[in-house]
Nucleic acid binder design. Structure first.
Ligand code: MN
Ligand code: MN
Ligand code: ZN
Ligand code: ZN
Lengths: 143, 143
DNA sequence: CATGTAATGAAAATGAATTTCAAAAGCAGA
DNA sequence: TCTGCTTTTGAAATTCATTTTCATTACATG
């Protein structure tokens, strides 16, 4: 599975005429080894702690490449930090965010998905994407 | 209706021990005279064009006060600018955003609202708020 | 008025993200 | 392996919205 992702990025790189670099390999390996929803800074620090010096700008640039390649997805939760999650082919989900401990739970709801398309269609919109985030307190954080 | 809002802010100000100032009056009048979803910069420029000098910092600070007072609501659409809309008591809506012309259409869907609460409850969350934005192209922008 | 405190605003600071640009590295072809 | 061209890198500078600072100004109350 990790190998497939690496191959996918390689294909993308070849198609785009991108060069293969030590930095991109390390950033990809590290990204693939993380849990969901990692911020750029977190990923940067994770790489740094493995004492392999890579510049922040390169991490920012490379995560954009992963997004373009379809491996990563940007998550903007309005806390001022862009996060990235792994893209799983054919899968879609939204997020339930605990404002206490910042835990993120993923969920899917077919009915909501359908209703959204209906709403867009009713207004004559061609829906491209949507963003649904539910904020609240998780069990642990409700004292 | 505008008078009610002004009275509401006045009550809030009194309760909080805030002073009444020329700047707050102008910012409130201007905000109440606008359409929905205005950015801070837009509001600042609108005030400036009425050749009444007010600092940007004051506009930022005052919109936060309006939010606290329950007159305004922050809208974060991830385009790098915070927008504010008017709060209408007891009313809730979500947004359909055209990525072509930036038009924003408001909608309400009781079923989606309920499903969201169910999802949160199912995960043991106490839902505090949610954010639902549908992005797409409006009729005019689909060439 | 006088006096204490809150509000203002210009300018500086912040912080995430992007850009710049000289140096380093990858890639073909010789 | 060497050469030359082009991409990539990364430290530092820049950007841009927003926040903070702090000296000055304005409000409110006696
Ligand atoms: Mn997710
Ligand atoms: Mn709205
Ligand atoms: Zn929690
Ligand atoms: Zn449009």
């Amino acid at each position: 599975m990790i190998q497939e992702k690496k191959k996918a990025f390689n294909n993308f790189a070849v198609a785009k005429g991108l060069r293969s670099t030590r930095q991109r390999d390390i950033i990809l390996d590290t990204f693939l080894s993380t849990n969901q929803h990692i911020s750029v800074e977190e990923l940067y620090l994770k790489i740094k702690s493995g004492n392999q010096g890579i510049g922040q700008a390169t991490v920012y640039r490379t995560l954009k490449l992963f997004t373009e390649a379809g491996l990563a997805r940007e998550i903007l939760l309005n806390d001022g930090q862009t996060r990235y999650e792994h893209v799983i082919a054919g899968e879609h989900h939204d997020h339930l965010v605990c404002t206490g401990c910042n835990a993120i739970i993923e969920f899917e709801d077919e009915t909501i998905e359908k209703l959204q398309k209906d709403i867009a269609a009713r207004q004559g919109f061609h829906m491209r994407s949507h963003k649904l985030e539910i904020y609240g307190l998780c069990i642990k954080c409700r004292h």
